[in-house]
Design a protein around this nucleic acid. Sequence first.
DNA 1: ATTACATATGAATATATGCTCATATGTTCA
DNA 2: TGAACATATGAGCATATATTCATATGTAAT
Lengths: 119, 119
Amino acid sequence: MKRNDAACYCSIIHQEVVDKVSRAMPQEETLYDLAELFKVFGDSTRIKILCALQEQEMCVCDIAALLGMTQSAISHQLRILKQARLVKYRRDGKVVYYSLDDEHVSNIFAQGFAHVSLR
Amino acid sequence: MKRNDAACYCSIIHQEVVDKVSRAMPQEETLYDLAELFKVFGDSTRIKILCALQEQEMCVCDIAALLGMTQSAISHQLRILKQARLVKYRRDGKVVYYSLDDEHVSNIFAQGFAHVSLR
DNA sequence: ATTACATATGAATATATGCTCATATGTTCA
DNA sequence: TGAACATATGAGCATATATTCATATGTAAT
């Protein structure tokens, strides 16, 4: 039974388990990216935006009106969703229409719904 | 074209769109719960724990050793995962073994992986 | 060009959250 | 009963982040 003194003051109880799982773990960076992705889903404003866009494409003003929030707040959140490649946009004159960019969004949503519905 | 003066200073451009999407939106509380769920996924430590537990059940010490973190930090995170009903535990003497509590976890993971792999 | 309007964005603030440290709780064994 | 050890948890701190406010940018129409 080995001490893992660096950052953890408790002993490794099952060294073979740690080794086995360690080998099975994906790359650090992949897990980081995954957490970053779910972090984007982890805000109710962004969830609402994604949920709305699942219905149909919408412009910024309409989203703001729908959610009863300022245009600025929505625009900031759309930027985050855009950076995560969850939404895309098209410009038509002054108006910018946003829509979902990836079918995984719906799947992730569906699984999330299924989980919260278990209660 | 109506002013949505309460919290938003821009006009509603497509009233019928707002109305239609508004009717299609799930309950506020459901969306809140959904965001709370994804918030739990939105941290790389918790993602790593879930990922490890996908491989097999593990005790707190082993998880701490695997991730090179303190027992305390892991225990705090396990509490959050437990509250979200993402992990369950069984006690065997002094040792507490954690494992995944719901098959949706794997599905959500798989969809997340698929998305981040698109890059 | 100028005005109007839809959207984007930088800075600031208030709040949320992850980790650490200290300590409590629970279990086993001598 | 008391020592050893695995785990849990409360408080504090440092950082991250959501919204607001002010303002910039982009487009269309007069």
